[in-house]
Amino acid sequence: MAASMLAACGGTSGACALQTSCGVGPVRTTLTVFAAASLQPAFDKIGAQLLTTNNVATTFSYAGTQTLATQLTQGAPADVFASADVAHMTTVQSAGLLHSQSVLFAHNRLEIAVARGNPKHVHSLADLARSGLVVVLADPSVPAGKYAAQALKAAGVTVHPASLEQQVTGVLSKVALGEADAGIVYHSDIVTSGKVDGVVIPDNQNVIADYPIAVLKSAQNQTGALAFVDFVVSTDGQSILRAAGFQGV
């Protein structure tokens, strides 16, 4: 029944029974995208855009990149994987799960998230070592945690974190909720959160995060998946990412 309807939709538009599925443009298809938690604000917008232009309804699964990579290697079905580091993309690639080579589509810088108005006067990574300051980081298995450890090492700072979160958004929410005084997150998290202030980390201590994206071999909707990746690297996609605080490629 559904198949015959889709077939009808593929033909002349007059045969269409459902306005939503084929009133304008191509047939509506669904797409599953596994994306690093930090990508949520930008990808939600990209998903909405793709629904209007390509009639692709995207379902996102946002989580720590390491969680997504584990789920994929355990056989989770998805069409597209967007990672917050190259290492986990390589893991997925070594497992033979990629349809084609991944492409870098964005960069991100680290920044210190603090409460609005910076009441604890945090001005540098070195300040994070202050006693009495509640600092939360992402777990070292999470890309953001790995990058944070690199930045702290570059700055020669030893921090005693109160908690190691499973995804960078966990760090952000602990600071936004006021439970933590500071945390190391991405610049994009601070731009889109609106609930925290950012303290810039100088370039010589900062780490640039690379975000690769790829279509998965198991993709049920390869056309939609390719369209999604194309859009992400397109001028429109890049401007959405830049507005969300990422650096384009």
Partner: peptide
């Protein structure tokens, strides 16, 4: 536990949380 107490080895990382984390690494 993970929502209220967070995750830190020896302080709040109980066995179920350690299982969840270890599964990924």
């Amino acid at each position: 536990t993970i929502t209220f107490a967070g995750n830190f080895p020896g302080r709040t990382q109980t066995v179920p949380i350690a299982v969840y984390l270890a599964l990924e690494t």
